[in-house]
C-alpha cells in the first residue's frame, strides 16, 4: 500500500489559499516520518503560475488544467478528483474545511467509498497510523480518531490549524490530462462575489470581534481600521448580526463561523457559550469589556476592563506604531 499524501489545493481570486500551504506543510512533516511523498493537486484553468508557487511545498504537483474548471463546481471537480485518486490510489488526501472543502470532500468520499474525517484540527503520525484530532460539541470534547480501512482516507482541516513552512522542495510538475464531465442537472445562473480584498474570516490571523457593546453599526468603522492595520478581519457576535449591524458572514460562533486566529480581540462581547464555542481555539484571546464579570474573561488570556470606546483609539495608535516598526 502506498503512503502518499495528497493535498487538494484550493484557490481563491487567482491565488492559492493560505490553508493549502498549511496543509502542504503539515503533510510534508508527516511524510518525512512515514517516508512517503507529498502531492499537491491543483485543479483549474491557466494555473501554471500558481502551480509553480507550489513547487516549494510538495514533492510532486499534479496540475489539471481545463477551461471547464475555471470556476469551482462540485460536479466537474469531483470527476477530476475521482480519476486522480483512482489512478494514484493515495493513502490519504487532505483538504480544507472551507465552504468548498465541505462541499466536495463528503461527496468524493461517498463516491469512492472512502473513509472521511471532517473539520479536524491536528494530525500526528504515530504507531504507523495517522491519528486525527477533531473537536466535538463546539470544543467541549476532543476526539482522536483513525481510519481503520485501507481505502483512500479523506481528512479536512480547519484553516489556521498548522504553520506554513517553506521547505524549498522544488517538486516535480506533472500535467494530468483528464476528461472533465459536467452534471447537466445543475445550471449556474449567476454568481455574485463580494468586492473585498480582505482575507477570509476563517483564515485571518487577526480577528477583532465586535459585540453588542459596540452600541451601533457606525462604531464598527474603528474595528475595520484596526483590522486593516493588522491585515485581519472584523468579526461579530450574533447579537450584532441579528441587529443587522453586520452581515451574517462575519458571525463568529456556534451558528456562525469557527475561527482560530493567532490573535482574537473581543470588544464588548459578553462571551456567551455559543460565541466562545466558535473562537476558543484562537491562539491568544484578548477581551475588552467594561464588566469585570463578563464571561469572556473566563476564556481570555488577557483582559482590559474598561469602556471599549476609551480603549479603541489607543489600540489603533499602538498597533499602527508596531506595524511601522516591522
Amino acid at each position: 500500500m502506498s503512503k502518499e499524501i495528497f493535498v487538494f489545493v484550493e484557490c481563491k481570486d487567482g491565488s492559492i489559499r493560505k490553508v493549502s500551504y498549511e496543509l502542504l506543510s503539515k503533510a510534508k512533516e508527516i511524510s518525512q516520518k512515514s517516508s512517503s511523498i507529498v502531492y499537491a493537486v491543483i485543479i483549474g484553468s491557466n494555473q501554471d503560475v500558481l502551480a509553480n508557487q507550489l513547487k516549494d511545498f510538495a514533492d510532486k504537483v499534479l496540475i489539471v488544467d481545463n477551461e471547464k474548471l475555471s470556476k469551482y463546481r462540485w460536479d466537474t471537480f469531483l470527476s477530476v478528483m475521482e480519476q486522480i485518486i483512482k489512478k494514484y490510489k493515495p493513502y490519504v488526501m487532505f483538504g480544507p474545511s472551507t465552504t468548498t472543502g465541505k462541499d466536495i470532500f463528503p461527496r468524493l468520499a461517498a463516491r469512492l467509498n472512502g473513509a472521511i474525517i471532517s473539520d479536524a484540527v491536528d494530525v500526528v503520525f504515530d504507531e504507523n497510523t495517522l491519528k486525527i484530532k477533531k473537536p466535538l460539541f463546539g470544543g467541549k470534547i476532543i476526539s482522536w480518531m483513525k481510519c481503520k480501512d485501507d481505502s483512500t482516507f479523506f481528512v479536512t482541516f480547519r484553516p489556521n490549524s498548522f504553520i506554513v513552512e517553506n521547505r524549498s522542495l522544488n517538486g516535480e510538475l506533472i500535467k494530468e490530462n483528464i476528461d472533465v464531465s459536467e452534471d447537466s442537472r445543475i445550471v449556474s445562473i449567476s454568481t455574485e462575489k463580494r468586492e473585498t480584498k480582505k482575507v477570509d474570516l476563517q483564515e485571518a490571523d487577526f480577528i477583532i470581534c465586535g459585540g453588542r457593546g459596540m452600541k451601533g453599526p457606525e462604531h464598527f468603522q474603528d474595528l475595520e481600521e484596526i483590522a486593516d492595520i493588522m491585515g485581519g478581519r472584523v468579526g461579530a457576535s450574533r447579537a450584532v448580526v441579528d441587529s443587522k449591524w453586520r452581515d451574517y458572514d462575519d458571525q463568529v460562533g456556534k451558528s456562525g463561523k469557527t475561527v482560530s486566529p493567532k490573535l482574537y480581540v473581543g470588544c464588548g462581547v459578553s462571551g456567551a457559550l455559543h460565541h466562545t464555542m466558535g473562537m476558543d481555539t484562537s491562539k491568544v484571546i484578548v477581551a475588552i469589556n467594561k464588566d469585570p464579570n463578563a464571561l469572556i474573561f473566563q476564556y481570555a488570556d488577557y483582559g482590559i476592563i474598561d469602556d471599549v470606546f476609551n480603549v479603541l483609539p489607543a489600540l489603533k495608535e499602538e498597533l499602527k506604531k508596531i506595524k511601522k516598526e516591522i
Partner: peptide
C-alpha cells in the same frame, strides 16, 4: 465503520485571564 475513535479528551483548560492594569486606557 471505516473510522474509529481512539480516545476522547477534555480540552486543556486555559490559564486564568491576566487583567491588564493601568491608570488610563
Amino acid at each position: 465503520s471505516k473510522i474509529s475513535v481512539l480516545t476522547y479528551e477534555t480540552p486543556s483548560a486555559r490559564p486564568t485571564v491576566k487583567i491588564i492594569d493601568g491608570e488610563t486606557p
